[in-house]
Design a binder for these strands. Structure first.
Lengths: 344, 344
DNA sequence: ACTCTACCTGTAAGCGCATTCAGAAAGCGC
DNA sequence: GCGCTTTCTGAATGCGCTTACAGGTAGAGT
């Protein structure tokens, strides 16, 4: 923006026939100002449609209230749900949120952090897994460290361990283990897993947890039972298709993400298979839409909005001096119609 | 943020043993700077992890690159899809997006615009319908007008006519009419409509278009065939339930929004009715997930991401002097399995 | 060799605001 | 009614940066 005709505090002060300082004080209420003067200032401001210049305010020392949130893709329902919580808390605290989508491009992530740093955002929230890349991790640290040294807050949702910052983490491992137990309970013994990129901790944890749960019953998950694909609906679809092409032996398929499960379900339908009569299918996350699928998806329900809310709260609260806090939020297995008992 | 130890340009200049001006020029590349000096400056900046203070830059006149986007709810798939387009274009243009969710609170909307104005955002994007409220419209104008006079750009996606600004609009009316025709083609003659709040232009337009399409075949839509509800999944669910409770005579239900259609579909399933065998169901928008429903939803496909992209492009391009531009994007009827031919 | 013209570099003036500091006004006790 | 304290006001400073503007240096032209 560059239109010149901007009303400044000086204009207001002149119109109200007071000094700049008085106008500032009247507007901010930092100090007592004689009632009639304040009235005059407020009236003038109103009349001139004055809006303080946030940049000037920030520069002059007033802590400005903006936070940055970086995610992979706003349109992913998983993130959208988290973002909802983030937005609510931000709104309640009068914060402006600068939201950036990296579209899973590490470079963009770094670039955005740098921009947020330039904006002197009071906090930065990183949502979603990081990248398995040493160079990237270094670059990330190179942005984050000076930012924090400068007083910036950083919080993370479901993210790399490499960062030593406040974080909110869903209990992926425990949730997946619980899911495994529930599926075993239904009589399943042969499983297949649709996994996302193995580099992501989310994937690793859920996989490990699932294996753990199975192991308790002496059931093993072979590497060949795991198919890797992109963390998207299409990824789930293609992974499921590949699985089917090679001949599916499992009675139950676990997609590490609801979004992938959605794709998988469609792939199964397209292949003429019925869920759960022919195969049971389970997901993870409990994004809002999965209960409206037919059959409704069995999944591990994560408090997604709360994840966002807590993270934002961490980011707001001053943490200097504190050692990094970790908040773990449990998931809960929700059995719906996409899984059924295996006929004995 | 308020941590003092912030590296400033002056620090860099001192470290590089050049003047402040030279450092600035070297970093911004605005003017030729002797090669060795530039090297020194760049090295110093790098070494000190210098990040320019965007506020100071903005204040000093450098046009800063941030845009504001205001929507009702990030987690609504309709908006999420649009936001995706917005984010992409913003990212490609090096813009930082400040995103705000109003949660359909008119006051919040005004408050956010005011904040964006304070931030001197170079453009503001309003996504989604406005409110039918004279007081609100006045308040909105009171924020928008000075903002535009100050050189701010404003663009709108699918929104009130009351604002005379650049806008991108889906062809709701035409799309709904085309859908009506397609449904008539399938033999349907008795319809019911799940509408959102009648105050929203989106609802009004889609309703009008649908009526229009039906009228061409001499089919009328009685007021009693229209059920109003919130613009959400639950709204669709409850509207459908009410419709069923009162005894459904229609052979086809049109939900003015896919999100509502999703709720409706579940309500139908819960009532033991089969789609499309017992009732056909159609939506509008083509949000990504509806093709994965069972049955896949017939709907009017809107280029949602493109809506966001175009709007952002409008917002970026300087429009001063130009009269407000309106971009209309057509929808396309997509027949899927949720609608079927009526047995003769 | 000397002047003139390019080209850089550094000095300094704000951008709009919060805030410190000193001084004016007002209230109090005696 | 005078001096004191207590409020409140206004002038001035600086936040970090960009950008005229002026000064300096070096190369070109004659």
């Amino acid at each position: 923006m560059d239109g010149r005709p901007h009303v400044t505090l000086e204009d207001v002060a002149r119109a109200a026939e007071v000094s700049l300082a008085t106008a500032s004080r009247a507007l901010n209420g930092t100090t007592k100002v004689r009632a009639d003067l304040r009235e005059r200032v407020l009236a003038a401001a109103e009349q001139l449609a004055y809006t303080p210049n946030a940049h000037a305010q920030a520069l002059a020392g007033a802590s400005h209230r903006t936070v940055g949130v970086i995610c992979h893709d706003v349109s992913d329902p998983y993130f959208a749900a988290i973002a909802r919580g983030v937005m609510r808390v931000a709104g309640d605290n009068g914060l402006l949120v600068m939201l950036a989508s990296t579209f899973r491009d590490p470079q963009k992530e770094i670039a955005y952090i740098s921009m947020l740093r330039a904006q002197r955002a009071s906090a930065i929230l990183l949502v979603g897994s990081g990248f398995e890349d040493k160079a990237w991790e270094r670059a990330l640290a190179a942005e984050i460290d000076p930012y924090r040294r400068g007083g910036g807050q950083v919080a993370v949702v479901s993210r790399h361990r490499s960062l030593r910052v406040d974080s909110v983490q869903p209990e992926n491992r425990e949730g997946a283990a619980a899911l495994a137990r529930a599926l075993l309970e239904l009589g399943h013994r042969r499983f297949a897993v649709l996994a996302g990129p193995r580099a992501l901790t989310t994937v690793v944890d859920r996989l490990a947890g699932f294996r753990e749960g199975l192991a308790e019953a002496g059931v093993e998950l072979a590497e060949s039972d795991i198919v890797e694909a992109a963390f998207t609906r299409d990824g789930g679809h293609s992974a499921m298709s590949r699985l089917l092409a090679r001949g599916l032996e499992a009675t139950c398929v676990f997609a590490v993400t609801d979004v992938m499960a959605i794709g998988a379900m469609t792939a199964l339908r397209e292949a003429g298979l019925s869920v759960p009569a022919d195969v049971s299918l389970a997901g993870f996350d409990d994004i809002p839409v999965v209960r409206d699928l037919t059959p409704a998806l069995t999944t591990v329900a994560l408090p997604l909005e709360e994840l966002g809310e807590r993270a934002m709260e961490l980011a707001i609260r001053d943490s200097r001096g504190t050692r990094s806090r970790v908040l773990r939020l449990p998931g809960e297995v929700v059995l719906r119609q996409s899984t059924s008992r295996v006929p004995a």
